[in-house]
């Protein structure tokens, strides 16, 4: 088996008394679309936050390419080539598409003006147009504020931004939620294209047919733990729903699981992740 590009081991995250992640494992592979599914409250969003630097886990370890990494901010994740399409898109609605694509990474003019902090707006506009064109996105006006665009166009911009900067891993939290049929198809196409470029794509979605259509592997979270892993070809929607809800017990899952050894039936024996807590604050 190829080594995972991004791997989380025994990650714990607690919000007050709520243990959102109770020793969760997760792995994503280069050039592979991994779907992360689970019912509401299973800990998907929390896990993504921990793996994209938005939240600091209280315990557990995260590895990128076999190296233990510390993700203490979105910036440190971005520096490692990890990008996220947030569910709320995280766009500055009063700025135009190019400004959003380069947000936090603005290009500056060469020479003295650049040292004074003067932006190279033309270069960013060109680069932004290129990044959008790569996704087949055409905007009515390049300098219209993002807030004046449609939901689908906004979503395309958020996806384009992550795709443009992600060199290793890209998290997509419900990237097709706001989209119509045609657009949805196009985003799935983009996901495949990004995967083919060698990036590890992690797709968080509630839409099971979509998951089955685009994912190569599926990891299932339930109550803050990984409860199953599947190869996409071997399962149907019923299996996934069964794993998500717990209707399908781990023993039964073994038959379908591509990595039967890894099935997290053992998790119930209570791996208190705090002991590994070198990652904590």
């Amino acid at each position: 088996m190829v080594e995972a590009l991004l791997e989380a081991r025994n990650v714990v995250k607690q919000y007050g008394t709520v243990r959102a992640l109770q020793g969760t494992d997760f792995s994503a592979y280069a050039g592979t679309v991994t779907a992360l599914i689970g019912d509401n409250g299973a800990g998907k969003s929390t896990l993504v936050k921990c793996l994209s630097g938005v939240a600091m886990p209280d315990g557990g370890e995260i590895f990128l390419d076999g190296q233990r990494i510390l993700l203490d901010s979105p910036t440190s994740a971005q520096r490692l080539g990890i990008e996220t399409v947030y569910q709320d898109l995280a766009l500055a609605y009063d700025l135009d598409a190019a400004a959003n694509l380069y947000l936090g990474r603005e290009l500056r003019r060469p020479g003295l003006l650049g040292m004074l902090g003067v932006l190279d707006k033309a270069a960013m506009r060109n680069g932004g147009a290129g990044a959008l064109a790569n996704l087949g996105v055409r905007l009515p006006a390049a300098d219209a504020p993002v807030g004046s665009l449609s939901g689908g166009q906004r979503q395309s911009i958020a996806v384009a931004r992550a795709v443009a900067w992600a060199s290793r891993v890209i998290f997509m939290d419900e990237p097709t939620a706001a989209l119509g049929v045609v657009q949805r198809e196009r985003v799935l196409e983009v996901i495949r294209r990004v995967r083919d470029s060698g990036v590890a794509v992690v797709l968080i979605s509630h839409n099971m047919p979509e998951v089955l259509a685009v994912a190569d592997r599926i990891e299932v979270l339930r109550l803050g733990r990984r409860v199953a892993r599947f190869a996409a070809g071997d399962v149907d929607v019923e299996d996934l729903v069964g794993a998500m809800t717990g209707a399908l017990e781990a023993s039964a899952l073994g038959a379908n699981d591509v990595e039967a050894n890894d099935v997290e039936a053992g998790a119930q024996t209570g791996g208190e992740g705090n002991t590994n807590g070198g990652n904590g604050r």
Partner: peptide, 18 residues
């Protein structure tokens, strides 16, 4: 309706022809 929503390509929204 879904069909009436934005298409990724050239949707005649407020910005069009601005």
């Amino acid at each position: 309706p879904v069909a009436a929503r934005a298409d990724l390509e050239g949707e005649p929204e407020a910005g069009a022809g601005e």
